[in-house]
Each structure stands twice: as structure tokens, then as C-alpha cells.
Amino acid sequence: MSDPEPDFAFRERLLRVVSEEDRPRVLIATGSVLDIIGRQYDRFRTGVPLKGLEAGRYRS
């Protein structure tokens, strides 16, 4: 399995698909916050959801 994209590369890819409303968040987000925003647009650094992100969705 290849390494996940670095923040700057993932951010550039996300900026092509995010709404104008989310654009400012993407510009300042890093790490897992960037992953969460990408998930809203069905974009993932590795092409598939990363382990650990699913677990956070089911916490109460």
C-alpha cells in the first residue's frame, strides 16, 4: 500500500470539488480535519476510507 498524500497535495485535490462555503476551511485545515472534510465529498487520501475515521462516526 502506498503512503497517504501529504496535506498540501490532498488540499489541492479537495479544492477542485468543495463548495465555496467550505473553501476557507479547506485552506486552513490540516491532518485529520482535512480528512473529515474530504470524507464529506467522498475524497480520501488513500482512495479508501482510513481506519479510525469510521470509528468516530459511531461514538455518542
Rank of each mutant, 00 (worst) to 15 (best):
A55V: 10
D22A: 11
D42M: 11
S2C: 10
D22P: 14
F44W: 13
V33Y: 10
E54P: 09
P4E: 02
S19N: 10
P6N: 07
R59Q: 12
S60D: 13
P4M: 11
S19Q: 06
V48T: 07
S2N: 13
A55D: 08
R13P: 01
E21Y: 11
G38F: 00
T46K: 05
R23L: 08
R59A: 12
P49S: 08
G52Q: 07
S2D: 15
S32G: 06
G47Q: 07
R11L: 02
R45I: 05
V17H: 02
L50Y: 10
D42I: 08
P49Y: 06
V18K: 02
Y58A: 06
E12Y: 04
E20P: 01
E21V: 08
F10D: 00
F8E: 14
Y41T: 08
K51Y: 11
F44A: 01
G38C: 03
D22I: 06
R43Q: 14
I37R: 05
D3R: 12
F44N: 05
R13H: 02
A55F: 09
D3A: 12
D35M: 06
P24S: 06
A9C: 00
R39S: 13
A9D: 07
T30E: 13
R45E: 00
T46S: 14
V18I: 09
R11E: 03
I36N: 01
P6Y: 03
A55G: 09
L15I: 04
D3K: 09
E5C: 04
G52W: 06
I28V: 15
T46V: 14
E5P: 00
S19L: 01
P4L: 04
R11V: 04
L15Q: 03
T30S: 10
D3Y: 03
E54S: 15
A29H: 05
R57C: 02
L50N: 07
T46H: 11
G47C: 14
F8C: 13
D35E: 11
P24V: 01
R39C: 07
S19F: 04
D7P: 00
R45A: 13
M1V: 09
V17M: 00
E20V: 11
S60Y: 08
P6E: 11
G31Y: 04
D35W: 02
P4T: 02
R57V: 13
F44H: 15
L53V: 03
E21C: 01
D42N: 15
S19H: 08
T30H: 09
G31V: 13
R43V: 12
G38V: 10
L27C: 05
L14Q: 04
L27V: 08
R25C: 03
R57Y: 02
A55T: 05
V33P: 00
V26I: 11
R59D: 07
E20M: 13
V48W: 11
R16C: 05
P24E: 04
L14D: 02
P49F: 05
R39Q: 12
E12Q: 10
R59P: 04
D7N: 07
